[in-house]
Design a protein around this nucleic acid. Structure first.
Length: 593
DNA sequence: TTAGGGTTAG
């Protein structure tokens, strides 16, 4: 079970083309275009498909007097952005400013988008200030670009705060794209409930949801295995709203069904989509390949690949990585290696995921030397092992009893500024316990600050089991009590039995198992969800006194309640002491008062 | 006469 947040997309670096001065394109044609009418200039801009042409055209444009209009510069800026050369686009934007081109909200929004795509959303936020100085009112395009940047960087709380601030202070009226961006962010964190609530809010505010809105939520529901809810929404979209599904909507649903092993329904849906004259694409086929491989059905997966090739679709790196997983799962490592090697012949360059798949295969088949070889090989190729690679390797080392090496690698991972996730901690704790190092496991458990990790029932099970096996029944019992209490309090809160929850909460202290940070978060969430606010402030103060902190989901709930005017703003002061610093590093976003 | 949103793997 992998945390969805761990799947941060790989960002490829582009290389600078050094043949800047040796371009084969005759620039005079672009030059001429600028003299002629606007429409032909536009068509010229459409023909620019490489960076050199664009940069040369920019040079030429900037030497002309009078300067071409901001519209022409913006078109060029956009062309560079579409090529994903964000650094160059930003550089051009700066040059535009130096040249005195009167930049407007169009060019500004492109510049902000570039900052955000480069994971420099903070710099993007500096630009609206620049907008004000230039008397450009930031509009819904600019704010949407910033919102998208926050979502891209997983700063979901800041994204929510920005969105609410925009609405509350009437800085702009969110449109369908802005709603979709916020919904995408919520879905990225599996907050489907709020995503659907936002969909309903859109309807209320007469902002028509689009196919993008529905597809985003449907995809998220499918990823969380809530396939029936996904189909409910699918039907609503089709029957009530008359919005037609496209290949993306179908692909999400087919993947959802396949991952649950509901093959018959998946194939029915595949047929339905073809009847609607919507052709499956590489991603649709890859979803099938992946699902077959996860069940070890590599023959079926290979058959799908053949069909897709017959249909003129080219399998990509994702398709083959899935196939490698399939063979690894069956222990057919020679075949897995063959697929890996054949990728290069097809012009596909294996990436971190591909390497990690094969490495995982070697670990699971207890060929640790080969796994270590892959680990070194990928570094040699300039690919940095990520959290998943490290976790896989650590697990492999524990499995062959090499605990010291496993711990070394865990430390090395820290040194590389990689943050261990839920999966890494489970592997570490399990590895230590299985190798009779329960004391070490317990100290590591104490060090795990994140309450999401601390409330992980799997983690508790590993530890209780480990402690029990080593005869440390006292420790096992303590852990068991902690777990049971947290589960019970959570259960009472869900059922609306706040009185029972509170009773148990108070009893914990008396019986020598004091509530931990997780217990507090669970109980506080219960109070908020049941609109019982009498104890909230006192509980927050207790948390401050005990040095505990609020986790992201509890904090997000608090923000919702404060924004809705259900809680006193004076509580915001307590948050400063209870919120991990990284959530509040941009004070401009937190001025609710 | 220039700007924004949704689907792929470990």
């Amino acid at each position: 079970m992998m945390n969805r947040m761990a799947f941060i997309k790989f960002r490829g670096n582009f290389t600078t083309n050094s043949s800047f001065l040796h371009s084969e394109t005759p620039f005079s044609s672009f030059h001429l275009a600028l003299h002629s009418d606007v429409s032909s200039n536009r068509s010229m801009l459409h023909k620019i498909t490489n960076l050199n042409d664009a940069l040369n055209l920019f040079d030429e444009m900037s030497q002309r007097r009078p300067l071409p209009s901001v519209v022409h510069f913006t078109q060029l800026l956009n062309a560079v952005t579409k090529m994903k050369h964000f650094t160059y686009a930003l550089d051009l934007f700066n040059q535009m400013c130096s040249l005195g081109v009167p930049v407007n909200e169009f060019s500004m929004s492109i510049a902000i988008k570039c900052c955000c795509q480069l994971y420099r959303t903070k710099d993007g936020f500096a630009l609206p200030g620049c907008c004000f100085r230039r008397a450009i009112p930031p509009n819904v395009y600019i704010y949407s670009a910033l919102l998208d940047g926050l979502v891209l960087e997983d700063k979901i709380l800041e994204a929510e705060m920005l969105f609410k601030k925009l609405v509350k202070q009437k800085l702009c009226e969110p449109n369908v794209v802005m709603y979709n961006t916020m919904i995408k962010g919520l879905c990225k964190f599996s907050n489907n409930v709020t995503a659907v609530a936002l969909l309903r809010l859109m309807e209320q505010k007469n902002c028509k949801p689009s196919i993008v809105t529905y597809s985003t939520i449907i995809d998220s529901l499918c990823k969380d295995k809530l396939i029936d809810d996904a189909f409910k929404l699918f039907k609503e979209m089709l029957s009530d709203k008359g919005i037609l599904p496209n290949v993306i909507t179908y692909t999400s649903l087919i993947r959802g069904l396949c991952n649950l092993g509901r093959w018959d329904e998946a194939s029915k849906l595949l047929k339905e989509m073809e009847d609607e004259k919507i052709s499956p694409n590489v991603k649709t086929f890859t979803a099938l390949v992946d699902a077959f491989c996860k069940e070890g059905k590599v023959e079926e997966a290979e058959a799908v690949i053949n069909i897709m090739i017959e249909r003129g679709e080219v399998p990509n790196i994702v398709t083959y990585s899935s196939l490698i997983d399939g063979y690894c799962l069956r222990g057919e490592m020679i075949k897995a290696r063959e697929i890996f090697d054949s990728m290069t012949l097809r012009g596909l360059v294996p990436n971190v995921v591909t390497y990690s798949s094969l490495l995982n295969g070697y670990c699971k088949n207890l060929n640790i030397e080969k796994a270590e070889q892959m680990f070194r090989e990928m570094s040699g190729k300039g690919l940095k092992p990520d959290v998943v690679t490290y976790s896989t390797m650590i697990q492999g080392l524990f499995q062959v009893g090499r605990c010291v090496d496993a711990c070394k690698l865990f430390n090395e991972m820290h040194a590389q500024s990689l943050i261990p996730d839920q999966c890494t901690y489970r592997i570490m704790l399990d590895g230590l316990c299985n190798n009779h190092l329960v004391e070490d496991a317990l100290s590591l458990f104490q060090l795990m600050g994140d309450s999401k990790l601390n409330s992980d029932i799997v983690v508790y099970t590993i530890l209780i089991d480990g402690a029990g096996k080593c005869g440390k029944f006292h420790i096992a019992r303590n852990l068991f009590h902690e777990l049971i209490d947290n589960v019970m309090i959570g259960g009472f809160c869900r059922e609306g039995q706040l009185g029972e929850a509170k009773l148990l909460f108070l009893k914990m202290e008396e019986s020598g198992y004091p509530p931990n940070t997780v217990t507090y978060c669970i109980f506080l969430q219960g109070c908020l969800k049941n609109k019982r606010y009498d104890d909230v402030e006192r509980l927050l103060q207790e948390m401050v006194d005990r040095g505990y902190s609020l986790d992201a989901s509890t904090l997000s709930l608090f923000i919702d309640h404060i924004a809705a005017g259900l809680l006193d703003k004076s509580m915001l002061k307590l948050f400063n002491k209870l919120v991990p610093k990284e959530f509040l590093d941009d004070p401009s976003l937190c001025d609710w008062e």
